[in-house]
Nucleic acid binder design. Sequence first.
RNA 1: GGGGGUGUAGCUCAGUUGGUUAGAGCGCUGGCCUGUCACGCCAGAGGCCGCGGGUUCGAGUCCCGUCACUCCCGCCA
Length: 599
Amino acid sequence: MDADFPELSPNVYRDTWCGQVLGDRVDKAVRVSGWVHRRRDHGGLIFIDLRDRTGVVQLVFNPDEAGGSFELGHRLRSEFVVSVVGRVLTREPETVNPDLPTGQFEIHVTGAEVLAESDTPPFAIEGFNAEVGEEARLRHRYLDLRREPMQRAIELRHRLTTSMRRFLDAEGFLEIETPILTRSTPEGARDFLVPSRQHRGSFYALPQSPQLFKQMLMVSGFERYFQVARCFRDEDLRADRQPDFTQLDIEMSFVDSEDIITLNERLMAHLLGEMGIDVQIPFPRMGYDEAIQRFGSDKPDTRYGFEITDLTEILRGTEFKAFGGVIESGGAVRGINFGRRELSRAQLDGLIDDAKELGAKGLVWAFREGDGWRAPIAKFLSAEELSGLNTAMDAEEGDLMLVAADQPAKVAAILGGLRTRLAERWGLIPEGENQLTWIVDWPMFEFNADEDRWDALHHPFTAPSGEFDPADPGSARAQAYDLVWNGVELGGGSIRINSPELQSQVFTALGISLEEAADRFGFLLEALRYGAPPHGGIAFGVDRFAALLAGVDSIRDVIAFPKTASGGDPLTGAPAPVDDVQMRDVGIALRKPAKPGSA
RNA sequence: GGGGGUGUAGCUCAGUUGGUUAGAGCGCUGGCCUGUCACGCCAGAGGCCGCGGGUUCGAGUCCCGUCACUCCCGCCA
């Protein structure tokens, strides 16, 4: 494992790491302890691969050398914990194992002791049958974590957070803890609630992020704060979402966006550099509107093309109702040229299903053929329209074009989603390339049609750019920035509002009355009255960051004890009912009987 | 909340149109084996086919429901 693992101070269990049984130990007596990784029992000669955190070393039990320990060697089974003494010898050339760092050496056991026996593990810790279902892995997570990939992932995560702390410490940041039991602020995600025993009927909430605390720390004059902070959101899970997750949370005073962006570029270059990834700073920046236009996403993966082309003007007034109707009602028609591809009819139908899954009413596919299209809808389009479309999408003979029509935001989301799916499916994403991009110039608000109100795109404490007109929230821009790495949102932040008046105006624009604002966030508004410096910050998703660095698809693979997609933990059985006494203590009664399955 | 996928031995999986006693590899147990390292050879144990109901002479297989896991949409300021 780690080549520069620290020297071991000898104790009763060992004086040498398994991974350190190398040339300088030859002919020396050593004591090692660890787990039985694999046993090869030849009857008259027994080989044991012994494993500790640093690696694996071969033990040889020979009746001529091992004496009474030979019998014990016979009894050893997978994952027994043993301590052995023996002499390190160089292996005969023909018995060297080139796949093992310690493969030129072995320990000839002269004495051995079983420190702990083990039941037969439910799945293999090592070896070629390494594919194990995730549920089994989570039920016995302590065993799963013994496995090499998990050991490496957890170690990588440690190196990442350590590296964050080192960099930020050197830049004058203080790591300050903020409460886990705090107050519900019913914006944003659903809160996890904790009933209060001492204040019956009242609840703590677990923080969705330390946002308000870090702003108050700026009011307190700490100027540079960070925290590797646990955050909690009671929403449905995904491969990249857990109900409790970790953020690197940063806040600074007397800064503008530029200061935060440049500091974080240096932070990223430092972190990635330590992980062996070289990146150029400064990172390119892209406006939010441009990202949506060209890539259909606020976290565009710029490692590959297939950008989105707007076709609305070409098709304005077209005979084809599905397009013309949408355009008349203020919608847009956009398309992507996916290049020359052979697809079966079933595959093309599959693309339509993909589009529908992404919320499309339909999807038009077409191949360029001569000056026109080979497509089910080709006959509804005029020759001028077809050639205009081919030109706009830069289509060459045989190129596959996918076209969708809907309201602009929706068509962008559909084609953006399709673009990533197809790039993944056809293996069109360049490996080993790293694109870090700032998305800047965000709108302050987006209109929520269902609730007939404006919602903050970032959060309600984000400072607007320039003059703010509460009467026209749609045109307000935010001093916000997201950092996107290869199509994954690594983190985002903003300059915050440091004036209570402006903060109140933003609440008003969001339809939050002053009474409501005072009730929910009064403590922050009050803090802002006592000399709040200009301040801003950013937060990064540590789990996602670690998963990307580890090259795994799910953040569960970089979390020691993660939860399943339904928010449960097969290891502890959480969540679980509690007994009546506990319920009574906190003054809680269930409205309905507990769900039968959940116990 | 909605959609897709999966559920058979400890693990990973196969199981034909519904047909007699449900299989494989690995692991496990016992025996043999002094240079293996995915050790080898021989023998053996191991099954609520997720659960409940239905159709049928007969269900791992078909139907309905349900639970769990997983991916996606909604949701995640």
